[in-house]
Simulated assay, not measured.
Amino acid sequence: MKSLLFRLAGTFSAEIGSELYLKLKEETLSPSLFCLDFSEVEEVTEVGWEFLRKITERCKETGSKVAGFGWKGSLTENLPLGFHFFPTESECIHYLESQILSETPANELTPKSEEKTVHCPECQSLLRWKLAGDYLCPQCKTKFFVNKKGWVSTYERLL
């Protein structure tokens, strides 16, 4: 499960709200955790509250979780149902992590049989992989290693 922290600043209005919504929509193709930092937000407009409602609904639909922290103003009746605000970042993160129902670490929640993708470290071709191990890029013939978390390590070449 992916987790992302978004640090917001200024006025949370249509511009920031729509940009954030599009980014979260892109990231919620699989369940994710989203922590929104409002500590530098001066104002949330009516349209901003509407985008928070849309973000909360999108997260519910996809099994993702979203919460915020650091809002210095008073929380109004505009607060979307299911959206939680916390005074500190650590409380927000603790809440989001408590929403993971499995004992498996967040970066290992993908089913073992699911096929995953990585980019070749040399030519950036998109390649599929199932298990950790050594791989050879069919395009550029670069050898590399993929660990169980999907991290790619290249091998040094001796000249």
Rank of each mutant, 00 (worst) to 15 (best):
S64W: 09
S64G: 09
S64E: 08
K65G: 03
K65P: 04
A67P: 15
A67N: 13
G68R: 07
G68K: 01
F69R: 15
F69N: 09
F69I: 15
G70I: 00
W71K: 12
W71T: 06
K72I: 04
K72P: 07
G73L: 10
G73S: 07
G73C: 06
S74A: 08
S74R: 14
S74E: 15
L75I: 15
T76K: 05
E77G: 08
E77C: 05
N78S: 06
L79C: 11
L79T: 05
L79K: 13
P80D: 02
L81F: 08
L81M: 12
L81Y: 11
L81T: 14
G82C: 03
G82W: 11
G82Q: 12
F83E: 14
H84A: 09
H84P: 03
F85A: 01
F85K: 06
F86A: 05
F86I: 04
F86K: 03
F86H: 05
F86C: 08
T88C: 14
T88W: 11
E89M: 04
E89Y: 03
S90W: 13
S90A: 14
S90L: 14
E91T: 14
C92W: 00
I93Q: 10
H94Y: 14
Y95D: 04
Y95S: 10
Y95M: 05
Y95E: 08
L96V: 13
L96E: 11
Q99N: 11
I100G: 00
I100D: 04
I100M: 07
L101R: 10
L101G: 14
L101P: 02
L101I: 11
S102Y: 06
E103L: 10
T104M: 01
P105Q: 12
P105Y: 13
P105T: 06
P105S: 04
A106I: 11
A106W: 07
N107K: 09
E108W: 07
E108Q: 06
L109H: 06
L109K: 10
L109S: 04
T110L: 11
T110H: 09
T110E: 09
T110C: 07
T110F: 06
P111V: 02
K112T: 01
S113H: 10
S113F: 08
E114T: 09
E114V: 01
E114H: 07
E115M: 05
E115V: 09
K116Y: 10
T117E: 14
V118L: 02
V118Y: 00
V118S: 03
V118N: 03
V118F: 02
H119M: 05
C120I: 05
C120Q: 04
C120H: 01
C120W: 01
P121D: 00
P121T: 00
E122N: 05
E122S: 03
C123M: 02
S125Y: 00
S125M: 00
S125L: 00
S125Q: 03
S125P: 00
L126T: 07
L127G: 06
L127V: 08
L127M: 13
